[in-house]
């Protein structure tokens, strides 16, 4: 804290000097940090990218040397039992999970960013907690209560389990979106005679649409890829990650799993990339849209 206090005093007088001295520093220094950054990226990407590499390899063993190019695994994979069913199940869960969680997250984010409420911090941490609490604990807790009430395990219970983490995430995205533009635009609309609903519909909503799209895509991805909760709350209908996990037990299925995994990887990459682009679209709006 002392640093903050002394800073203005020091920098005011010294600013002219720094500018002169800045020159050598201003050149982009790649150096050790740059090398580290590249290595770090390799650490992040390399293991994941071995999956597509070996999915095209003409061998049932995942080992070097690569023995030849083939798309055979993609063909056998597409014919395997249960795949289409699992894929349909995952979409059946992830689509409503994305829609409901984005709706709830948007409402909650609107409340948090626009109104002063007592006890708000506690409420926000409670809503955000599913992002941090170990998934296994949420999973077994839900399993116990679902069992106590007597609800049968099904895709619906998986959907229910996916709602808290998805909603927490949606709220997080929408908060940053709602904070990204000036609330005065909304006030102006109210002052010009629009009611709260029309203000939301004609002013707020168009501004947050990119955030909504990003949230839909990202929460869809979360639910679509989720394994732990689905493993506890899934009934007899497996979602895609459950299906993949069950296939991993059979060594001869490995190349097919690699092919499936490759498709999923690139589908996720694409969805998330689009979501990220959307999320940052129109940040330049800020204050100058009105009238």
């Amino acid at each position: 804290m002392t640093i903050r206090d002394t800073a203005p005093v020091a920098s005011g007088e010294a600013r002219t000097k720094t500018r002169a001295r800045r020159a050598p520093d201003a050149a982009p220094r790649i150096g050790a940090l740059g090398v580290f950054a590249v290595l770090y990226l390799a650490f992040i990407y390399a293991p994941v990218l071995f999956i597509p590499l070996f999915s095209f390899n003409d061998s049932t063993y995942i080992a070097f040397p690569l023995s030849g190019f083939t798309t055979e695994w993609y063909v056998t994979m597409s014919r395997s039992d249960g795949l289409v069913g699992a894929l349909t199940n995952s979409i059946k869960v992830a689509t409503p999970a994305a829609v409901v969680s984005t709706l709830l997250g948007t409402l909650a984010a609107k409340a948090v960013t626009r109104y002063r409420m007592p006890g708000m911090e506690a409420v926000v941490s409670f809503i955000m907690s599913p992002l941090v609490v170990p998934a296994i604990i949420v999973g077994v807790a839900l399993l116990i209560i679902v069992n106590a009430i007597g609800i049968e395990l099904s895709l619906f219970t998986v959907f229910l389990a996916h709602l808290p983490p998805c909603t927490a995430f949606a709220m997080w995205i929408m908060i940053s979106r709602l904070e990204g533009f000036d609330a005065a635009i909304e006030e102006a609309s109210r002052d010009l005679g629009e009611g709260p609903w029309m203000t939301f519909w004609r002013v707020t909503f168009p501004l947050i649409v990119p955030g909504v799209v990003a949230s839909l895509l990202l929460t869809f991805t979360i639910s679509f890829d989720e394994y732990v909760l689905a493993s506890f709350l899934g009934g007899s209908e497996p979602t895609l990650p459950i299906y993949i996990y069950s296939q991993l037990r059979f060594p001869w299925q490995l190349p097919n799993v690699l092919a499936l995994a490759t498709i999923l990887l690139f589908a996720s990459f694409a969805l998330v990339y689009i979501a990220m682009r959307f999320r940052n679209r129109g940040v330049q709006f800020k204050t100058t849209t009105g009238v």
């Binding site: 994941v48 991805t221 890829d225 394994y227 996720s268 990459f269």
Partner: peptide
């Protein structure tokens, strides 16, 4: 940095 972490945890 963030894109790989959106892919399935199981697959990673």
């Amino acid at each position: 940095i963030t894109v790989p972490f959106w892919t399935s945890y199981l697959l990673r």
